[in-house]
Design a protein around this nucleic acid. Structure first.
Length: 935
DNA sequence: CAAGGCACGC
DNA sequence: GACGTACGTGCCTTGT
């Protein structure tokens, strides 16, 4: 870090970014001026100043008419002409603004902003200045002297190592930094819209550069280059030179580096104020005036002559982009500094008094402190309660189980009171703990973690995060109590009572406050029902499934382990024999070197992003037929995966308490609304391969009076898509019970249903599969092992045959473009903020999600509702059978023999009727002595 | 201990 | 021609 920090802004680049960001939703003043671009520019500039606190600053403008360096390329021209008024009005306004801010504005006749920036960076005294440049693509990055001439992608980031010129070089297999420029010139448009030569890609560019050294060399020899590539190069000559020019930043333009000129100054408040009024940037102005406590009256003439306050020159800039955009200035309550009352409740009398208070409330918030993160094994240490903000109570529990249970027993009346809503963060954990002590909570429940999961599914939902975000408050971290992660972590039992009281009471207090805020958020988006009627009721269901656990046939796994071990040893020695040496087959690195360097099974091996040889299944299977070793390696991989991940890991997780394995369902991780399973993950137990299936045999019923019953939805996602799209032929196929993949195949390949062969069906199945998972034509080709063109033909045929599906997909995307989110049948949202992005990769990703999320998410909604209804039914009828597992579209039961027929009928009923659909929903139900047989 | 590579399920 | 290639969890290796 040097003492001075110079920031350089490319004004037109920022203006364009702002322009496009607001193109759908422009900001118009009451007099009809479009202020989108100037607004975006202003906020970005203030944000940069606020965040980076530069000591020196300049805004640079392009001067070549029409000013923008990329402006002459057709797509930019088209975009600009589509809505020009914003840009044209923005330029003079931005200039006025910059002037009012007393920030130097540099325009150099005949040169572009990037070149001015590059030159200033070059000229800045190296020992004094850190120089940064803001660009709309990557925010800002430091200009590193020796690489300033490179175009942005190569120099951004704090130093060349970070941004990865070495990576670029490794990836492109060129040896000289300056050739990066030539690469960009040749293949261009992958990098920030430099056009390059259409048709020349990475491989071609590398080959050409290796042969002819530079773009100039290539162009000089263009006539010698054969085939299409030669044609393309001859045709793209000008574009290549232009691209090279664009990719290079000039560092010798005639601009002086004058330190005094560039110094940050106080703005001219009078001018600034007038301009902000004119632009109607009210929030921004309020902030500017308010923060400047020394002089709130901006109309006072002496303001501009006020002496410079060097020490806190940045204090003016309090507003951020988000705040202004939302037009909502939230006065965050900084309760860290506010007094709170946390009480320690000890002894029966104090507890009785607390209980009396609690019983009088409509809502209480509670939290349990325990000895373990795993709820099944945890013992309770204490309980905390809160029923109004900034006040909370902590009740310690004695260490001995019976005594602790007695204390909890006193609170039974509270937990069982149906009139009191119980609020918690990660409710399932607390429910499970209390269940371990025989307490079943009744009444309405609320979980702030799940509330936030519904509000913002893709963010984090931890309490500390929520407290920071919504309350601007940093709670005491668990680490300060019991130490960091790892084996050094202490036990909650050993924490002094006073410390644990503060921590525990605070948790209850914070959770209560979060509930109030999250409730409002849910109301805004009408998602209360999803929380109250689906997610929260599901908590109890999952808690009881987890507590129930599943029995494992340990002996079967032991036998399997022995077999796998023998096979592994044999396979490994065979691999060593063929390879001619011993190595670690489990190391992708060593394996890659053996296959591609020693054995040279391919001249052009595929590499991973880090330059290692790729040895994934999809890559290796290409060589399977010609190289016996590859087959053995794949075998080895399968065997070791089964052995380490399942056969050996699962028995370790059998609970000492119950003798069964208890997975943990996470209800707040997936973007689509599905559950996930950990410790162990029981949602990825093998089924595809023969040997893998053996593992399912080890999942067995609790005793000889029970059997495993498995019920799964048949083609649930496709049925949901059929229902959503109302595509007649697809709905009909489902309603008639015809095999959907064959139906698809018949339509796509234009044959009679009876003439569909297995290959056609396989391809059609992949297409159906691909649509559900939102993969592209490329992905489909990859999976099917067919040329991309053929994959595209299949997809085109699909859309012709199922036109409503196409319409449905387009509607999904259009809706997302409009609202930036999509939703499921129960109103679960997934936000797709990249849907209007100009980065085609990100946009494509968002578009696939726009189709995928409603389908997968609705399927998740459906099985959640079914689970709740089935659980309620089983409880009401006091069945001995238990629901024990959920695997996305499948439910597994430990079913009492006497109840099997009844259970089958009811489970089918509740699954089929969970949510009414315009298409027939079907399930497949099986029963067996183990999980595999039940399928 | 984190990151990369790989593989399992739906 | 190149984009990047569903979502999760968990194992092993490698390098710090």
């Amino acid at each position: 870090m040097r003492s001075k920090k110079l920031f350089l802004l490319d004004a037109m680049a920022l203006i364009y970014r702002a322009h496009f960001a607001f193109i759908k939703n422009p900001r118009i003043t009451s007099t009809g001026v479009n202020t989108s671009a100037v607004f975006g520019f202003t906020n970005t500039m203030l944000e940069v100043i606020k965040k980076e606190k530069p000591t020196h600053f300049a805004v640079c403008f392009d001067t070549k008419a029409p000013t923008f360096r990329h402006i002459d390329f057709p797509e930019y021209k088209a975009q600009r002409e589509a809505q020009p008024e914003d840009i044209t009005t923005a330029i003079p306004l931005v200039k006025r603004l910059v002037k009012a801010m007393n920030i130097p504005l540099i325009e150099l006749d005949g040169f572009e902003a990037d070149d001015v920036i590059g030159t200033l960076a070059k000229k800045a005294p190296k020992d004094e200045f850190d120089v940064f440049m803001y660009t709309p693509d990557k925010d800002y990055g430091q200009l590193v002297d020796e690489h300033i001439f490179l175009y942005k992608p190569a120099f951004l980031g704090n130093g060349i190592e970070v941004m990865g010129v070495p990576e670029i070089l490794a990836k492109w297999e060129i040896s000289r930094i300056d050739q990066v420029i030539d690469m960009l010139g040749l293949m261009g448009d992958k990098v920030d819209n430099i056009p390059g030569i259409p048709g020349v890609g990475e491989k071609t560019a590398v080959k050409l550069l290796q042969e002819y050294d530079s773009i100039e060399g290539i162009l000089a020899n263009a006539d010698k280059i054969p085939n299409k590539i030669g044609e393309k190069i001859r045709a793209g000559k000008e574009s290549a030179l232009m691209s090279k020019h664009l990719a290079r930043i000039e560092i010798n333009v005639p601009v002086e580096f004058d330190e005094e000129d560039l110094k940050m100054c106080e703005p001219n408040t009078e001018e600034l104020s007038a301009l902000l009024d004119e632009l109607e940037f009210r929030t921004l102005k309020t902030r500017l005036i308010k923060s400047d406590g020394s002089n709130q009256d901006l109309n006072k003439p002496e303001t501009k002559d006020k002496p410079k306050a060097e020490t806190n020159q940045m204090s003016l800039f309090g507003a951020t982009e988000e705040e202004e955009v939302e037009k909502e200035v939230k006065e965050k309550d900084t309760i860290n500094s506010v007094v709170h009352d946390y009480y320690l409740i000890e002894g029966k009398e104090q507890r009785a008094e607390l209980i009396e208070y609690l019983m009088a409330q409509d809502e209480i918030c509670f939290d349990t402190e325990t000895t373990d993160v795993d709820a099944i094994d945890a013992e309770i240490v204490g309980l905390s309660f809160a029923y109004r903000a900034k006040e909370a109570f902590y009740v310690p529990c004695p260490p001995r189980f019976e005594e602790a249970k007695a204390v909890l027993e006193e609170f039974r009346s509270v937990f069982e009171n149906e009139k009191i809503m119980k609020i918690a963060q990660n409710l399932k954990y607390d429910l499970t703990i209390l269940s371990n002590y025989g307490i079943e909570i009744k009444g309405t429940l609320y979980d702030t973690m799940l509330a936030h999961y519904i509000v913002e599914p893709e963010q984090r939902h931890g309490m500390d995060y929520l407290a920071m975000n919504y309350l601007n408050y940093e709670p005491v971290s668990i680490e300060t109590l019991i130490g960091g992660k790892g084996k050094k972590q202490g036990n909650m039992r050993d924490v002094p009572l006073e410390a644990i009281k503060e921590y525990a009471a605070e948790d209850a207090d914070i959770t209560l406050q979060l509930k109030t805020i999250l409730d409002k958020e849910l109301k805004k988006t009408s998602q209360e029902k999803l929380l109250y009627e689906v997610e929260v009721p599901l908590v109890s269901v999952l808690s009881s499934m987890e507590r129930e656990g599943v029995k494992l046939d340990v002996q079967a796994l032991q036998d399997l382990s022995d077999t796998l071990h023998k096979d592994l040893v044999i396979t490994q020695s065979e691999i060593f024999e063929i390879a001619g040496m011993e190595f670690n087959v489990g190391s992708p690195k060593q394996l890659g070197e053996i296959l591609f360097e020693k054995m040279k099974i391919d001249e052009k091996p595929k590499k991973t992003p880090t330059g290692q040889y790729a040895t994934g299944e999809d890559v290796l299977s290409n060589y399977e037929a010609e190289h016996e070793i590859v087959k053995k390696i794949l075998d080895f991989r399968e065997l070791s995966k089964l052995k380490s991940t399942y056969v050996e890991a699962l028995p370790q997780l059998i609970s000492k308490k119950t003798g069964r394995i208890h997975t943990s369902y996470n209800q707040a991780v997936t973007a689509t609304g599905r559950l996930s399973s950990t410790n162990p993950n029981l949602q990825n137990i093998p089924i595809r391969t023969e040997r893998g299936r053996e593992i399912r045999k080890a999942f067995i019923p609790r005793d000889s009076d029970h059997l495993i019953l498995s019920a799964d939805y048949s083609q649930i996602e496709l049925r949901i898509m059929a229902a959503f799209s109302e595509d007649a032929s697809m709905v009909e196929a489902f309603n008639q019970g015809i095999d959907i993949h064959s139906t698809t195949a018949a339509k796509v390949f234009g044959v009679e249903l009876a003439d569909v062969n297995s290959d056609m069906r396989r391809k059609a199945k992949m297409v159906n599969f691909g649509i559900i998972y939102g993969i592209s034509a490329f992905g489909l080709a990859q999976r099917l092992g067919i040329p991309r063109g053929e994959a595209k033909d299949i997809i085109d045929a699909y859309f012709t045959q199922f036109p409503n599906v196409k319409t449905f997909m387009d509607e999904c995307i259009n809706k997302a473009r409009e609202t930036e989110y999509v939703e499921t049948i129960l109103g679960r949202r997934r936000y797709l903020r990249d849907i209007n992005s100009r980065n085609q990769t990100n946009r494509g990703f968002a578009e696939r999600n726009a189709i995928n999320a409603p389908i997968q998410g609705s399927a998740a909604d459906m099985i959640k509702v079914a689970m709740i209804n089935i659980h309620d039914f089983m409880k009401a009828e006091k069945l001995k059978s238990k629901m024990i597992l959920q695997v996305h579209d499948e439910l597994v039961f430990d079913a009492h023999i006497s109840e099997i027929e009844y259970l089958k009928e009811k489970v089918d009923y509740f699954m089929v009727n969970a949510i009414p659909m315009k298409v027939k929903i079907e399930t497949g139900i099986g029963v067996g002595k183990n999980w595999l047989e039940a399928h």
